[in-house]
Design a protein around this nucleic acid. Structure first.
Lengths: 339, 339
DNA sequence: TTTTTAACCGAAATCGATTTCGTAATTAAC
DNA sequence: GTTAATTACGAAATCGATTTCGGTTAAAAA
């Protein structure tokens, strides 16, 4: 029981294939009579145009590809939701791949997506990605590309980001304004732009408020895990007993730190204030609940997808598309891990 | 700068398109000399077969579709990770759609996937889905379908599940064995099979241990949210002051309940023991940490995908494929919300 | 020298849908 | 009644790759 084709309709009605095709698409050079004839039969046969054939003819797949570092991650799954939502609304399907923060995998996946002829690509790059030939080659092939959250500044394409630096500045400043004088920073890996920017925001906040920036107070988390949060909290308590605040690159690590401080009976925020980044759901639930920066994942996904689809549309019309960088607002969420 | 086609290679080498095609695929009726000639040029031109054309010819897309109720959900994003992992390994891409627990959307999405000609479909059905014509119609079109986690028993296809009933039985039994005598149950909606099964496991455990099953101790959570957990915990404390245990359908709701009990200074587990279901990461981090049932999401995704791909393979070979139901082991995780 | 047999290659059909262009039949115009 | 203008359809080409089936050349066998 294969599905009906134009040929099937044409044969049973004694028409030619082109006429049937045109009838279904309301071409003016088909009589009303045959149009209704064709459309009725198409409905009863439940005719669906063969997507492969249409794709081949129009050379478009109505599909976009997304590469994220990790699906099991509150922020990225929110972004994903936004992307899928917008794409579906515009008649596009979404192929998801995850790089697991690996540059090698990311390259392979870009290749996979190109081979499978997606109409465009959304990407949030892996921590280990420091070369961008695979991305610029996408652009040079005239495949629309939009980066979100973890971007590479040097790649010229549309981007959707938050102002990590400013948000980190605000978070750190809040610690300062509520009395912290010796503030540590658990930062992310050296490479990705947003871990750099958050660090710079932290540093700037210290300097603007006449606190001394001390590199020894900055701990680098390689995989930004719960365990790393615990580990560096422990180490911090050993190294610097008089620390009274920590600004953490991401909530998960902050929660690890909170767990360690709780176990050592350090009072939060009385002894040490902690502020995280990203606003995972979890953060509202642990004890003490975690102050943090809210990152609008769903919105970021929607906007990134919208930008991509617009660019795809322009590409088809051979119009130039100016790359845009959209910066989304973040919110400082105050809970019980800070004053 | 369009990408190279067989025609391009054929023209520059003075060969015909079929010969080039056969050279690339090592047909025996092409001389070694032309083979190397063709292959070399293909490499320098970076030739990639046009996926649309191949799909049309072979009528396969090397793509599978996945419908889940929600991406922003620890369990489902784990399953997703497993699916994508296995699919990529076997050369398949994965299209993700989310039904948002809506039957209407689910139907539309099945249709979308069929129209876009995926080679197979993986689905975890929405809570509101009680009719299955859209699913049986997939099967009758000979498109392989595999259900996971939230399944419909009446649909005849392969399934990957856990034994919800037995796991719930174990969880409830643990409460009983550690001294609970009046155990409430926060269950899920009436429809989905696993919320029914978990309820039945709870009930059976009570009966097997000579405790009286009291329907008034069962609260129905419609959307299984944190807030519902809080709400019903509050209500439970009003309705039945002597309750000493709660078995909750899912961790998120359990965490809501814990939050409410904490606020009311009820001691966990001394006054009331709580046990959840699913083992969200969050559960190990809140205080007190939540005892729960571990559900192997990643493994479930991998196995469901593996089953689907095997069925796709068999379908192409016109072989019959016997539907399998794989039941994955769960684990009782004991933490500090129970003795 | 003739016949047989490989070895190599290409013509043509196919997968479905789309679009351009040409033509027959009908109607309108003069 | 002849010409011009519609109307309504189909032939053919196209999007790339694949596969079957012949056919030509050269080498091997008789």
């Amino acid at each position: 029981m294969k599905s009906a084709t134009l040929k099937d309709i044409a044969n049973t009605l004694g028409l030619s294939v082109p006429t049937v095709s045109k009838a279904l698409k309301d071409y003016p050079d088909v009589s009303q009579k045959t149009k209704t004839l064709v459309k009725d039969l198409a409905k009863t046969l439940n005719y669906q145009p063969n997507a492969f054939a249409v794709s081949l003819r129009k050379s478009e797949s109505k599909t976009i590809g997304v590469i994220i570092p990790e699906t099991v991650h509150h922020f990225f799954s929110s972004v994903l939701k936004g992307i899928i939502h917008k794409a579906e609304e515009k008649g596009y399907l979404v192929i998801i791949l995850q790089s697991n923060e690996s540059y090698t995998l990311e390259k392979k996946q870009i290749d996979l997506l190109l081979r499978s002829k997606v109409d465009g690509i959304l990407i949030s790059i892996a921590n280990s990605t420091s070369e961008f030939k695979h991305l610029t080659s996408v652009i040079s092939k005239d495949i629309p590309l939009v980066m979100f959250d973890k971007i590479a500044k040097v790649v010229s394409c549309s981007k959707v980001i938050i102002n990590d630096r400013e948000a980190a500045y605000r978070a750190t400043t809040h610690l300062i304004k509520t009395g912290c004088r010796k503030i540590a920073h658990f930062r992310g890996p050296l490479m990705p732009q947003n871990s750099i920017d958050r660090f710079l925001g932290y540093k700037k906040a210290l300097e603007d408020h006449e606190l001394i920036y001390d590199p020894k107070l900055v701990y680098i988390c390689e995989d930004m895990s719960f365990d790393e949060g615990k580990k560096y909290a422990k180490q911090l308590l050993n190294d610097h007993k008089d620390v009274d605040g920590i600004f953490v690159n991401t909530d998960l690590v902050a929660i690890g730190a909170i767990t360690e401080l709780n176990e050592q009976n350090i009072k939060i925020p009385e002894d040490i204030s902690i502020i995280g980044f990203s606003n995972w759901f979890m953060s509202s639930v642990i004890s003490p609940s975690l102050s943090t920066i809210d990152q609008p994942g769903f919105k970021m996904g929607k906007i990134a997808c919208k930008l991509l689809l617009k660019q795809i549309k322009n590409e088809r019309k051979k119009q130039v598309f100016e790359h845009k960088t959209v910066e989304l607002k973040t919110k400082l969420i105050l809970r019980n891990s800070t004053f």
